[in-house]
């Protein structure tokens, strides 16, 4: 694709930004035409090979003042609409929905405040496509497992923060780009006007997979949105219920493999071999073949000072149990241990 310009976007603010962008662009073009025009004229006509003789003027206070003032006036003309737009963008009062967006290495977490909805959203493009082992799909690198879902026509206030390093949440169509800074909260807002799917990316270097933490926003009509809310809530309840059930080793292994591939394989590799010097191997590692509680502990709480995160807050008890079971039995580890979700819940308290 040979796309050359920013998107007019899907909100009133985005269109305003687009217009501002076009105005300043054309002003620059106009100034460029004049300046380069005079320069080109001189290059063509005042060249020695054409017999041009140098004239002797080299100072003129009046022109200097003139070409100080004119740009100044042009700048003021640009600053006025820019200020107006900026003030609007900063007004996040009277929102209908508050969503806390937290950046993690390398995924996003969305919490609908007061709605009991809380989930993670990570890249769903398969590694094979990235490694050129499979044909790349249409939305290569711009697709996630759980998109952020918003209702149409409502003012959504975003509260950005991060759990580890700085990330930045950008969806061009909403004209929202705001840094997610650990320990602080930044606000921004949008009123999406049309149902649709809008894609964006993390735009602050946040480590190895900075290029692999896209954002997908699905804007739905109110009714569908409400339905989605209800479905998501009941799915969460089902999860909670599942944590009290007994799981067989096979069930855990199957589920564990999926969890491993989305949450762990980026560092420890799908083969469990890790990357020497950077990420430890899990295959054959005493960490995952000996003491179960130590293993659970490190997965729950991470290891300080390393890239090993605390997954206790990111995954539910079933997923944790499954992935730990998987690690203890995959790649020839074959301990035969199976960890049940209840054990995780116990340790978490």
């Amino acid at each position: 694709a040979w796309e050359v310009n920013i998107t007019p976007g899907a909100t009133a603010i985005a269109r305003e930004v687009y217009d501002l962008h076009m105005i300043i662009f054309w002003i620059c073009v106009a100034i460029g035409v004049v300046v380069f025009g005079v320069m080109l004229w001189s290059i063509i006509h005042h060249r020695k090979s054409r017999g041009a003789e140098a004239r002797n003027f080299h100072e003129n206070t009046a022109v200097e003042i003139l070409w100080t003032l004119i740009p100044f006036v042009i700048l003021i003309a640009m600053a006025i609409p820019a200020t107006a737009t900026l003030i609007k963008m900063y007004d996040s009062t009277d929102a209908d929905i508050d969503i806390q967006v937290t950046g993690y290495q390398w995924k996003w977490r969305y919490q609908y405040l007061g709605q009991d909805i809380d989930f993670f959203s990570s890249l769903s493009t398969p590694r094979e496509q990235i490694n050129n082992e499979a044909a790349k799909g249409e939305n290569y690198l711009l697709e996630v497992d759980n998109p952020l879902v918003l209702p149409v026509g409502k003012k959504v206030r975003f509260l950005f923060t991060a759990a580890d390093v700085i990330h930045s949440w950008w969806v061009p169509d909403l004209a929202v780009k705001k840094d997610a800074i650990p320990g602080f909260i930044n606000e921004s807002w949008a009123i999406p006007e049309e149902p649709g799917i809008y894609r964006g990316q993390c735009t602050e270097l946040c480590g190895r997979d900075h290029g692999f933490m896209p954002i997908v926003v699905e804007v739905k009509p109110q009714a569908e949105f409400d339905q989605w809310l209800a479905d998501t809530r009941s799915a969460a309840q089902a999860q909670a219920a599942a944590a009290t059930e007994e799981w067989t080793l096979e069930q855990l292994m199957e589920r564990g493999e999926q969890v491993y591939n989305t949450s762990c394989a980026a560092c420890h590799q799908a083969s469990g071999q890790g990357i020497p010097g950077a990420f430890p191997a899990l295959a054959g590692s005493p960490m995952v073949t000996t003491d179960i509680d130590a293993h659970i502990n490190i997965v729950l709480h991470g290891k300080a000072g390393t890239a090993m995160q605390a997954f206790g807050a990111q995954l539910n008890a079933v997923d944790l149990a499954a992935v730990i079971t998987y690690e203890r039995n995959a790649w020839g580890n074959d301990t035969g241990d199976s960890v049940n979700p209840q054990r995780i819940t116990e340790l978490q308290q």
């Binding site: 509260l159 923060t161 320990g183 602080f184 909260i185 930044n186």
Partner: peptide
């Protein structure tokens, strides 16, 4: 201006 940050603390 950024007092909302207190939510986290």
């Amino acid at each position: 201006d950024k007092g909302v940050s207190n939510m986290l603390w």
